[in-house]
Design a protein around this nucleic acid. Structure first.
Length: 467
DNA sequence: ATGTCC
């Protein structure tokens, strides 16, 4: 028996030599060439049946390995062209974000998608990207800050009744900002989310519990904020009369806990997809049929509840300090994946910096530290997968903002709008963001504006370069 | 986004 006959049977690479060697043994034992070829065909047809032992075991193992690689490559191949997807505010979106969305729309697990008008480049899926997949979840389709969210509390207080100095003092006393920060031990609050049994369901969660318990109620860094301002209702809504109210708006996420969950599972997804096209490496997914996919789903949802708990504590502390009950509140997550019916099929809808906007659903879309934010009500637009933007969106990256913006101009912008800033890096300057009015105007078919929030006293992380 | 390795 020679290599040519073996190759003709369809054996490849290392399997050729192993098949030749096994055939020589069988011919040596007196078998006719035709019978040996039949045996080789049988091994090829069902390698698993020959793995246990015998002359064909090594060949069967190699064939099984080759089969697994081929299946993996087949399952990881990108579509030749992106599936079509809706884009809102295309004139506001940089080409890089479109290119990232195009790659996401070529994943074999993708079924639908949309790009919101605040879109800009991120890791894997662009910020402002909405992606619907079938039976698969993409850790970087959710993002690093799992469960990043917004909360608004409206108080029974006239906006001018809270003096500037008192607002500053309250924010400094009751919020904590910065990477790695936590409340001092005696200041630490408790929350029901810390008493869930979920923490004991995975070693990773158990390991991260102490960090989560230490950081609960804190706000983090980057674009996270807590701010007092004026909520203006032109018409009665949210259970409130029309008018102006003192309100608190916060943007916070799942802190170190969520970041570690995201890092762990995206690395795991990448390892499980070694044959994924390098262009889509950061979009590696986990099947919801797999143990890993179920573990991510559980951890992601816990991080989502934890992030909302952070907001609840921030708002509870400040409401208590003000000595009032909250009149009305709105909250929404904008970095998360949800099970959602899309064209009659249950899909996994990832929103990475996108506000859920089902028909009638309330949401919050902030502008910047010195620009208005909006309470919106979703219109449930099917092509947008019932979503809207999560903010104004960056028009300058962090580095570009730090190198091009001038402190003096940022200070003038704040002064012109009567905004007092505590902390705040220059990379978060209003000039680093798109104009919120433009972004809102591009999505009038996705949401209706319910109310306007005008920031007055804003606290953010100091970052490396204060304004 | 996060003390940049779970």
């Amino acid at each position: 028996m020679n290599g040519k006959q073996i190759t003709k049977l369809g054996f490849e690479k290392k399997a050729i030599g192993l098949a030749v060697a096994a055939a020589a043994v069988r011919e040596g034992a007196g078998l006719e060439r035709g019978a040996v070829l039949d045996e080789l065909r049988a091994v090829q047809a069902d390698p698993a049946a020959y793995l246990a032992g015998g002359v064909y075991a090594a060949l069967a193992a190699e064939l099984s390995a080759q089969h697994a690689v081929n299946e993996s490559k087949k399952g990881a191949a990108l579509l030749g062209a992106p599936l079509p997807y809706g884009v809102w505010g295309a004139d506001l979106i940089e080409p890089g974000a479109r290119a990232q969305m195009d790659v996401a729309m070529r994943l074999p697990v993708t079924r639908a998608g949309a790009l919101m008008p605040d879109a800009h480049v991120g890791y894997g899926l662009p910020i402002g990207g909405v992606l619907a997949t079938e039976n698969a979840v993409i850790p970087y389709g959710v993002g690093v800050d799992i469960g990043c969210s917004m909360r608004l509390s409206v108080f029974p207080i006239q906006p001018d009744a809270l003096k500037l100095e008192e607002a500053r003092t309250l924010l400094l006393k009751h919020t904590r900002f910065g990477a790695g920060v936590a409340f001092e031990k005696r200041e630490r609050d408790d929350h029901a989310v810390l008493h869930e049994g979920t923490w004991e369901d995975q070693p990773l969660l158990g390991h991260l519990f102490e960090k989560a318990a230490a950081q609960i109620g804190s706000s983090g860094s980057g674009n996270h904020f807590a701010e007092f301002g004026t909520l203006s209702l032109a018409q009665p809504d949210l259970g409130l009369d029309a008018g102006n109210y003192l309100a608190l708006l916060s943007h916070s996420g799942s802190r170190g806990f969520g970041a570690q969950v995201a890092g762990h599972f995206t690395a795991l997804a990448e390892r499980l997809h070694p044959h994924l096209d390098p262009a889509a490496r950061k979009l590696a997914w986990l099947s919801l049929d797999s143990e890993e996919g179920q573990a991510y789903w559980q951890a992601m949802n816990l991080a989502g509840r934890y992030a909302l708990a952070n907001h609840e504590l921030i708002h509870a502390r400040l409401a208590r300090a003000l000595g009032v009950d909250v009149l009305a509140s709105v909250h929404n997550s904008h970095n998360l994946a949800w099970k959602q019916q899309v064209n009659g099929q249950e899909l996994i809808v990832h929103r990475k910096g996108a506000t859920p906007a089902a028909s009638g659903q309330l949401g919050l879309i902030p502008g910047s530290m010195a620009d208005p934010g909006f309470v919106v009500r979703g219109r449930g637009h099917a092509d947008a997968l019932a979503s809207a933007s999560h903010g104004a969106g960056r028009q300058l990256g962090r580095k570009a903002a730090a190198s091009t913006l001038v402190k003096k101009e940022v200070a003038a912008y704040l002064k012109g709008r009567g905004v007092t800033l505590i902390g705040g890096g220059i990379d978060e300057a209003p000039q680093a963001y798109k104009r919120i009015e433009d972004v809102i105007s591009r999505q009038s078919d996705l949401v209706d504006v319910v109310a306007r929030f005008t920031p007055k006293v804003v606290r953010m992380d100091s970052g490396s370069q204060d304004i």
